[in-house]
Nucleic acid binder design. Structure first.
Lengths: 252, 252
DNA sequence: CGTTGGGTTGATCGACCTCAATAAAAGTGG
DNA sequence: CCACTTTTATTGAGGTCGATCAACCCAACG
């Protein structure tokens, strides 16, 4: 069985991974974009779509490819069209903390800083819209309504990270794992729709690094939830069996 | 001895705590504002200062007063002029996590949401500039350069919280406490200048809640650092004795 | 003077990490 | 296709960091 999300996980490993599509197709590709209304581009007026289209280029990353690195010059921002991206930070001693997973509709480069504040890697095969930083920055200058939307998304993100911080501190690993599964399901609902089957293409290490626990603990918690009949472990994700129980484990 | 910061801690407890200063003094008060260049107001052009002045009113909070509450309607945003404010979030079960301390120059209400995403309480006697949400929102509409600055501050904040998240997960309580002391010193440098004497007017409980540890552990770590000769415990703060050691404890 | 809230210190306990072994899955080369 | 290596996941045994429970001190205050 192939991955539940974004196609097979490693078969694209050795292929060329960057495909720039033609920059000016016959039709305005932004018009057809399935995730536009989920993303920052929703702030773009219909009359401005052509302009946006000329700014962006579609780009594809195979699984486990580097999208950009922390502290490097940020030459572009991205809008995820499909796939899963892990966002990570390195601490002084070189250890890694995953600060989040970006899903279709999510924007990479919220902070518009000269240098990237974190690293981004594709987990699965990922397609994204790429905007050169300079051009995107000019767009923001010209269009305050887009800047307002960007700010709104950024502060939502701030709220989310603050929440994540609270959760990491005060909750047990069981609560955190349960919350993680529920949160991912909620976030994916808008792309894959209502489903009990949830793709989790990231590794146990990724999940552990995100939830502030070791890989072993992450695995144990998954097994524990499965044994308790709350979830079912699939090859590349989980099925939620008993949502009520899961919610009670996450909070309560 | 009085507090190192913002005056005595509890003597103002039973006094009226809100003093609205006259709204239109003879001079433009923003011009004389000592923290203007540290804050969002730095984005305001000299020619716009009068306008800003008319928008804002100075407000004073005694120690341990509520400034605004999570989930309540956000009728105003604030710019801290002096004092220390604790920002907290409540989790589902009612426990509190402190997401940060606001210092002079810091802005409360970054997210510009209809409802407050967190609660703010003064730790010490605190003076602030108050902007009604509606008026401030209009200001942002009219002046994109202020919005840009707001967005810049918000994304810096996002980066900071992400960093805090990493630190909470991966570091020992000793590292966290050492980092806390160093960070507070760095942040206060721009207001109180270069000094080894660092005011920490918040309680051990506040510090613990911020650093994700219990009050007892927070106290123990402070004592440990003091016994090791790295810091000196003062009545309302600490003195940094051995900065090099402290830095090595924070990282390494 | 008693009360109250903050701070310190000690003893005990448990959640989670560390270390270790094994299993399962996926990529590699013939 | 099959052997081989590498990576990922699972499970177990034991150790430890920090939480919990508890006692006590001290300063502020009515």
């Amino acid at each position: 069985m192939h991955g539940l999300f974004g196609g097979p996980k490693r078969q694209v490993f050795n292929k060329a991974y960057v495909h720039l599509l033609p920059e000016k197709p016959a039709t305005i590709k932004c018009e057809a974009c399935r995730i536009r209304n989920l993303s920052l581009c929703d702030a773009i007026l219909p009359s401005e779509l052509q302009e946006l289209d000329e700014l962006s280029s579609e780009i594809e990353f195979g699984a486990n490819k580097n999208i950009f690195d922390q502290d490097e010059l940020a030459d572009a921002v991205f809008n995820i069209v499909s796939g899963v991206v892990r966002l990570s930070k390195l601490s002084a001693d070189g250890r890694r903390q995953i600060v989040g997973f970006a899903l279709p509709g999510d924007f990479l480069g919220l902070s518009m800083t000269k240098h990237n504040v974190l690293s981004a890697e594709s987990v699965t095969l990922t397609r994204a819209c790429r905007f050169p930083s300079v051009a995107f920055s000019e767009l923001l200058q010209k269009k305050p309504h887009v800047l307002r939307r960007l700010h709104s998304i950024t502060s939502d993100q701030l709220t989310l990270v603050q929440y994540q911080m609270v959760a990491l501190n005060r909750n047990t690993v069981e609560q955190r794992m349960a919350t993680f599964i529920l949160t991912m399901r909620d976030r994916l609902r808008r792309t894959i729709g209502e489903s009990n089957e949830l793709p989790l293409p990231m590794t146990r290490r990724d999940i552990g690094d995100f939830l502030g626990m070791t890989i072993e603990t992450a695995s144990r918690e998954m097994s524990k939830l499965a044994k308790a009949g709350v979830i079912l472990l699939k090859s590349n994700g989980v099925s939620i069996i008993d949502e009520g129980r899961l919610k009670r484990l996450a909070f309560g």
